[in-house]
Amino acid sequence: MKLAADLQAFAARIGHEFSKPELLIRAVTHASISSASRPDNQRLEFLGDRVLGLVMAEALLKADTAASEGQLAPRFNALVRKETCAEVAREMGLGEVLKLGRSEMMSGGRRKEALLGDAMEAVIAAVYSDAGFEAARRVVLRLWGDRIGTVEADARDPKTALQEWAQARGMAPPTYLERGREGPDHQPVFTVEVCLANGESEAASAGTKRQAEQAAARALLARMENQS
């Protein structure tokens, strides 16, 4: 079996030459177009999530030999979360080579964060299944690049940090209100406002409610800390 030109180019971008091309084909095949003769990527996604986790856990331990488990855990979560996988997928142009059913394609599947994140995990599993753990580790470390070294700034979840800030001052936890949704169903933009018991608030917009909540929390926390 030979890979199509677009998949050959994608394999070159991630830095792996497949001896079993069918693994990459399966990794980019979404359930919306799968069949008995064309299995989807869900089982590979399950495996890839675990391979990614092991690579990242090992890399973090090596990067900071003095860090405690409490310091390592949020860094790990920041590196393996779906948003980060989707970000890497976009950088590699994974969305352009996905095999999707018509309905998923029409609804903007190539840009959906969850779909991209799942497919990135499936690609990692495809490399692992094709050539073993060392090959998968090389690919993951190459694609994640300097994220491992700079993860500390991204590791503190802004919603958790804002809640801790409020509780330390005797306030109730922040509340989050959806203030609007715009755009087509396949590419919505949510606006969320976060409010503190002292009346302070900030609003932010993003492609998912979670991202909008985080952005609003980050903005409000930054303002509150600057005023302290």
Rank of each mutant, 00 (worst) to 15 (best):
Q187W: 08
H186P: 10
E200L: 15
V139N: 06
L116N: 09
A119M: 07
P174M: 04
F190N: 00
R147M: 07
S129P: 01
P184R: 02
L220G: 10
Q163L: 00
Q211W: 03
I124L: 09
V140S: 05
S201G: 04
C195G: 05
A122F: 02
P173L: 14
Q187V: 11
A172F: 03
I124D: 07
P173C: 10
D185I: 11
G108I: 02
P188G: 07
F133C: 06
Q187C: 05
A114I: 02
R110Y: 10
S228D: 15
E213Y: 12
R179C: 11
A153T: 01
A166E: 05
G199S: 02
Q211P: 01
P158M: 09
A135K: 01
L221G: 07
Q227N: 09
G117Q: 00
G207S: 14
R147C: 06
N226G: 13
R179F: 03
G117W: 00
E121V: 03
E213M: 15
A119P: 01
I124Q: 09
A131H: 04
L220V: 07
E164Y: 10
A197G: 00
R223C: 02
R179Q: 13
R179D: 10
D157Y: 09
G117P: 06
Q214P: 07
A161E: 07
A222S: 13
K112P: 03
D185M: 06
R142A: 09
E152P: 05
A216I: 09
S103Q: 08
G199T: 07
R110S: 10
S129H: 11
R147V: 08
A219L: 14
S129C: 13
A168S: 12
G149L: 00
A204K: 09
G170A: 01
V192L: 14
L220Y: 05
G207L: 09
E193R: 14
R181A: 09
A172H: 08
V194D: 06
A206M: 05
A217N: 01
E200V: 09
G145A: 15
M171Q: 11
K159E: 15
C195R: 15
A155K: 12
K209Y: 13
P188F: 11
K209A: 08
R138N: 14
M106Y: 11
E178H: 08
E113M: 12
A219C: 10
R137F: 01
T160C: 01
A212P: 07
R210K: 15
S107A: 13
S107L: 13
D118K: 12
A155Q: 12
G170P: 02
V127Q: 03
R210P: 03
E193A: 11
A172P: 00
A153F: 00
R156E: 04
L221K: 08
N198T: 15
E104Q: 06
L116V: 03
G108V: 06
F190M: 06
A222N: 08
A155T: 13
G109T: 09
V189P: 04
G180L: 11
A136D: 12
A168T: 04
R138A: 14
A131K: 06
V194Q: 08
Q214H: 12
Q211V: 00
W144E: 00
E104W: 03
A217T: 00
E178Q: 13
A114Y: 03
Q167E: 14
S228Y: 00
E152R: 14
M120P: 01
E113N: 10
R110V: 08
M224Y: 09
K112W: 01
E225R: 15
E134Y: 07
V140E: 11
E202R: 15
M106I: 12
A217P: 00
L220S: 04
R142M: 07
